[in-house]
């Protein structure tokens, strides 16, 4: 389970850690958005430089970030390969049937690779430096305008935090049941697909039943403590917007301006 570093918070004191989760989330989504507008070498280098700078500032070692890329490396390479093989244009180095390796394709491949890696890095920065519970608060705060159109934002935020809270528990429990079945001699990952599926039923059944039971208990407890989904609630944790958050948003805008400028310059070359 150690492969799963996403959603795993790294405690720290860095500047990035201390930013308001709302601002951080908006900035990250915004950054992913402008990634798609980058054209040409200079634009990509600018954004890559920015990504690396932010990663450096988060105070989390590069190794952790690279671990986040590893499970995705095959799909990235697959896309890049397709891109390289099927894009024609520029100088052609190699040609076999429908496959061509051209300068245009290679450049595009590198760009797509960079874009993927930057999306992963930036979203990892957010999840590594923000507690999941803060992220839920941020999502809650950002969705609040939707209340006007009768979207039950409070309920949704509650469900999101319950889901986040239960993922580690459910993981542990599933492992436990699997270990119990192993102790009885079950082997996983062997035999035909149907056989494998058969071994899984005794695992998920108790888990489903247990979860239903737990949901019921939890609902009862919340009732007893006076939870009412349609009433406004106050929050124990308060999010505070500081000067640094405003600065970070301004930096994002400046970055956009620079990118547009660089795109313009790139067009003349």
């Amino acid at each position: 389970m150690n492969k799963l570093i996403l959603g795993r918070y790294f405690p720290g004191e860095s500047w990035i850690h201390q930013l308001d989760p709302r601002g951080k989330l908006v900035a990250a989504i915004y950054f992913i958005g402008i990634l798609f507008f980058a054209e040409g070498w200079i634009g990509y280098l600018l954004l890559l430089g920015f990504t690396l700078l932010v990663m450096q500032m988060s105070g989390v070692s590069l190794k952790i970030y690279l671990r986040g890329v590893r499970p995705l490396i095959w799909l990235i390479l697959f896309t890049v390969t397709l891109q390289v093989l099927f894009t024609a244009g520029g100088t052609i180095y190699f040609d076999w049937g429908p496959f061509t390796v051209s300068s245009y394709g290679l450049i595009n491949g590198v760009f797509i690779f960079l874009r993927f890696v930057m999306i992963i890095f930036i979203s990892t920065v957010v999840t590594l430096t923000t507690k999941p519970i803060d992220l839920t608060d941020a999502i809650h705060a950002l969705l609040r305008p939707l209340r006007v159109v009768k979207v039950p934002v409070e309920d949704f935020a509650l469900m999101l935090s319950i889901a986040l809270r239960f993922i580690p528990n459910l993981l542990d429990e599933t492992q436990k049941v699997m270990d119990a079945q192993r102790a009885r001699g079950t082997t996983f990952g062997e035999g035909t697909l149907i056989q494998q599926m058969k071994t899984l039923v005794p695992i998920v059944l108790p888990l489903f039943v247990g979860s239903l039971k737990r949901a019921e208990d939890m609902a009862d407890v919340m009732e007893v403590r006076g939870y009412q989904s349609d009433k406004p609630r106050s929050s124990f944790r308060q999010l505070t917007w500081t000067r640094y958050d405003t600065v970070s948003i301004i930096i994002m805008l400046l970055l956009t301006a620079m990118l547009m400028l660089v795109n313009r310059i790139g067009a003349y070359y």
């Binding site: 319950i162 889901a163 239960f166 459910l170 599933t174 996983f188 998920v204 239903l212 949901a215 009732e223």
Partner: peptide, 23 residues
């Protein structure tokens, strides 16, 4: 309330089932 909690836990469950090896 029960509805909200059940939906939340089972969504978490769906996520867990997807990432556990062998499952």
């Amino acid at each position: 309330t029960l509805f909200l909690i059940e939906v939340a836990i089972f969504s978490a469950f769906a996520f867990v089932l997807d990432i556990i090896p062998f499952l």
